[in-house]
Design a binder for these strands. Structure first.
Lengths: 221, 221
DNA sequence: TGACTAACGAACCAGTTCGTACATTAGTGA
DNA sequence: TCACTAATGTACGAACTGGTTCGTTAGTCA
């Protein structure tokens, strides 16, 4: 999320398409995440920008396309983090833990991304469907998982014959739920899943869960 | 979700407060789940009802309170299902599996509930906070989990010393994610997590995951 | 049977919201 | 330096939206 630097105008050009566009995306990300798609106001987004509503329509076309652009950028961040992950040197158990923790850390650090994805699901992923960029990029994490699973199975460490996509779903579900459902869970059960002092606890729990599943003794089942 | 029976008017009274109220709740549940809080239209809800918008304000006060009432009823359904669950006669492993499957089945059967909870989280659970009923009821599942965990630990079957609330979070996260993120996950990875022919697969996967976590061999860690 | 009230309906209103028409200016290349 | 275009700002409007006002009617109980 390349946030626009504050004093961009000092020294910079008054007319800077890239900067204006980026600033609109920054503000729109916050507003959509805060209020949902229908709840977000184009006027409000414009007001929190150093430019005007006119520019939103000039650069993005409309509210719908703006939301799609916001989503595209939000997804690119996690995709990049996954791409930068290097687990080649780790043994399968450590590698899976590392990957799970990457998702855990990313989701915790980007609650707006989580909210945007929740919102997009309410709208049945229609913006992803409309986006060429998001259409069929998948996730770099999947390839990583595939390789780890294979080596783990070869070495006999992993007994479960899970699919990479399903394992990704398992890891994501825990990380996503913790951030996405933080408020209802907290209100109903009086426990803050994202409390700072519980962070290590849940991070460990996630790894334990995934590893236990992958290495469980299947002979007694 | 006590859906109002279609030919309610035939024979019934023309003026039936309970029926009108229930019908408004039915329709409002669908509309809020479909479009989100801000996206749902009071006029549209009224139009899909056999009564008028006036009645929504007469019975509920406003859009906000209507949404709260919708949430209250949706939560009462799962609470009831959990209360009806009887696992006293099962061994701890089977009992946990049974409880996990109850959540799995409920979430799959009630996608509108899942959407409402997602929406409520976007609004930071403010309606739950405003509801006396939802304030501090918790979940009957928690007591069940507590008892199972204790007996499982006593018998030496369960090695993990998890808290009931955390285990509930683990189970819920998988079940919730599968339904809530169905669309984005499907659009990005080309896999429908709620496909009918994969139901048993995921149901088993959930149980395996939870049991593996609870019974994992901790001596090697 | 007649008064009383809970239940109900139609029309309306004030504020909002997405989107656009029109006008203007900063930078840039010839 | 001058024409040309990308970038930008202002003002406005048509449609919508939550909520209300005012009036009506079905059922019930004394």
């Amino acid at each position: 999320m390349t946030t626009v630097e504050e004093p961009a105008r000092s020294g910079g050009r008054l007319r800077d398409a890239a900067r204006t566009k980026a600033e609109i995306l920054d503000v729109a990300t916050r507003e959509f995440a805060r209020s949902g798609y229908a709840g977000a106001r184009v006027d409000e987004i414009a007001a929190r920008t150093r430019t005007t509503k006119r520019m939103i329509y000039y650069y993005f076309g409309g509210k719908e396309q703006l939301f799609t652009a916001v989503l595209e950028r939000a997804y690119s961040v996690i995709r990049q983090a996954e791409q930068d992950l290097d687990v080649e040197h780790l043994d399968p158990v450590a590698a899976i833990r590392r990957l799970a923790e990457l998702t855990f850390d990313h989701h915790e650090a980007h609650p707006d991304f989580i909210r945007l994805v929740s919102i997009e699901n309410i709208h049945e992923a229609e913006h992803i469907a409309a986006s060429e960029e998001l259409g069929k990029i998948g996730s770099p994490a999947l390839e990583v998982i595939r390789r780890i699973l294979e080596s783990g199975r070869t070495s006999g460490l992993f007994t479960a014959d899970v699919d990479a996509v399903d394992l990704h779903a398992m890891i994501s579900s825990f990380c996503f739920f913790r951030v996405a459902n933080r408020h209802t869970f907290g209100a109903l059960f009086g426990r803050d899943l994202v409390a700072a002092d519980q962070r290590e606890h849940y991070r460990t729990m996630l790894g334990d869960m995934v590893i236990a599943y992958l290495t469980a003794d299947r002979t007694t089942d």
